[in-house]
Design a binder for these strands. Sequence first.
RNA 1: CGCGGGGUAGAGCAGUCUGGUAGCUCGUCGGGCUCAUAACCCGGAGGUCAUGUGGUUCAAAUCCCUUCCCCGCAA
Length: 315
Amino acid sequence: MRILFMGTPELAAVTLRAIDEKEGTEIVGVVTRPDKPKGRGMKMLASPVKEYAEAHGIPVYQPKTLRGGAFDEDLRALDPELIVVAAYGNILPHEVLVYPKYGCVNAHGSLLPKYRGASPIQRAILDGERETGITAMYMDDGLDTGDIIEKYPCPILETDDCGTLTERLAKLAGEAMCDVIDRIEAGTVTRTPQPEEGASYAAKIEKEDTVLDFGESARDLVNRIRALHPSPCAATTLPDGSPLKITAARAVDDDSDAEPGTILAADGKGTGGITVRCGEGALFVTGLIPAGKKNMTAGDFVRGRRVSPGDRWGI
RNA sequence: CGCGGGGUAGAGCAGUCUGGUAGCUCGUCGGGCUCAUAACCCGGAGGUCAUGUGGUUCAAAUCCCUUCCCCGCAA
């Protein structure tokens, strides 16, 4: 089957690999977002999907937009029978959606209709959900509103953060898309309209979403830290005003009457831990990234004498 | 040339402004104490202070310059 793949981040690259390695499929091309200047010195950075495609000799297309017929000529030349989309990041116009014989299918990182939109995985963890998954669906003109082919559930573990969960969902997305391709070839694919009930929108993560407010409960703060790890990471500020990213922490009981944000204890033995008073309970921080430094344990941070009980964070 | 921080013992840091025999908290190794211990006490090993036959100097981790690498912010 001639397949055109559209996607951008790591999750999409993993899905692409699964389809590419599947028997009977031919990836005729890959559409991914244009390289953009990124990081120090504004160096150009290619998407994971582009890297995979180039390493495997698959033609890469990076149109700024698919709208207005900008991609029509390439689309006709590639003549795909099916378009598979995974976290592409751009809107697909109607004429593209209806072009392939078998349509456009998408792997979305949530159990639709919940968490439609840009950041379903992060939002699910942020909300403390216990389960999420991949939804295989036909795309329509709306934002993740198309008919559902199949849902593939996946539990969210206590120990999961966005990185580990995304890894599992990526693998699942690959399996899901292979499954869908099998069904299409066998003619057994079905489509079920999404119920409106339970629909929600997972907005893109913005900078303000990364700020830790110690007035919240320790439990919510832990979810925020998990949801944003390993990137961009939840952060607070040190007494000197410099930013501090928190990479790992757990909630602990505490009934002291200290102000939220107060350091209750700083243990520098071994892995160590820094206990921070929250609106409810306390946050036991075990991993962090100071400005200009790499990820380190709380113990390392304490040993460097950069925190002591009584300090306030996040002011 | 987007703004900025940093590279000192296995780890995290101080020392750099005000040049003058390399220090702290840990880890590690050995010994002691203890019913016992990740606790405590004693002792030891471990660093060409990123790079350069670089510059200045009586003397450079420290001042000046080169190159490489790491990271935060902003996009």
